[in-house]
């Protein structure tokens, strides 16, 4: 491809590795996108009567205590009260799944429980059921700081996620780091570029008119880079999520957040 560019004295033929150097944000300077939102959207997130995500939470609460079949346990049948059993769980995901010997994110864990313990089909990504249950579980961590599990088995997911974050992708040759490490606080057209922390997922986005998962958000960012988004549930997304959570700690969880 480069041969098409006959280069002159500038020596532009030796294009360095297609990476934009990362400048990681120190923990004390990490900020949620919440801080950059207009007061009306902040109020919508804070106010229990106005937050549209609560509709999905209600679905999730119902599913938590409903048996999938008469002879199969509900989530509550194994775990009991979500408020105690699920407190802090989302703040430390993705974690390691012993059964598959691979990293697993919260949505993956919920579907694994359905398959392994409830004898049921996994829910489709972005289905009302999976979003509702994930939001319900994640909301039990609201206000708790994101923690980074010190599990050596997650090391390769962490470094794969970081590599994906800093690598140039797509026709425009942008990287996640180009915007979220290097240019947060600036504007991309009308949009304020946030630091890109996944503190509030699943969250309600006004532009979506609905709840969406962090993977939906990442697919949007990749499409904007004119890159081919990873498929829902792809190991690359789980690795990216692990890196994003490391990068976001110790910000508090905000599920269900509201974003423009």
């Amino acid at each position: 491809m480069l041969a098409a560019l006959a280069t002159g004295s500038a020596g532009a033929g030796e294009i360095p590795p297609a990476e934009i150097p990362p400048s990681e944000i120190p923990p004390a300077e990490r900020r949620s996108s919440f801080d950059g939102m207009s007061p009306d959207i902040q109020a919508m997130q804070r106010d229990a009567d106005a937050n549209p995500g609560l509709l999905w939470l209600q679905d999730g609460a119902d599913l938590w205590s409903t048996a999938p079949a008469p002879d199969r346990p509900a989530c509550a049948g194994c775990h009991g009260e979500a408020a105690t059993a699920m407190r802090g769980v989302a703040a430390r995901y993705p974690t390691w799944d012993e059964a598959t010997a691979a990293p697993i994110d919260l949505q993956g864990r919920i579907n694994a429980c359905r398959r392994r313990h409830q004898g049921a089909e996994p829910y489709a990504y972005e289905s009302r059921e999976l979003l509702g249950l994930t939001a319900y579980v994640a909301a039990q961590s609201a206000g708790l700081p994101i923690t980074t599990p010190a599990d050596a088995r997650l090391g390769s997911a962490r470094s794969a996620g970081r590599a994906l974050f800093t690598r140039r992708m797509g026709q425009l040759g942008l990287s996640c780091a180009a915007c979220h490490d290097g240019n947060h606080g600036r504007r991309l057209g009308a949009a304020l570029i946030p630091q890109g922390h996944p503190t509030g997922y699943p969250l309600y986005r006004l532009e979506w008119q609905g709840l969406g998962s962090v993977q939906r958000r990442l697919r949007n960012c990749m499409t904007g880079m004119r890159a081919e988004p990873f498929a829902y549930g792809a190991p690359e997304f789980v690795a990216l999520e692990r890196y994003l959570m490391d990068r976001a700690a110790p910000l508090p969880m905000e599920t269900p957040a509201v974003r423009p």
């Binding site: 491809m1 297609a18 992708m169 797509g170 026709q171 040759g173 890159a227």
Partner: peptide, 12 residues
């Protein structure tokens, strides 16, 4: 310039 980056969307 034809990009040598990865995962270029099919349309691009």
């Amino acid at each position: 310039r034809l990009q040598e980056t990865v995962r270029i969307g099919a349309a691009w």
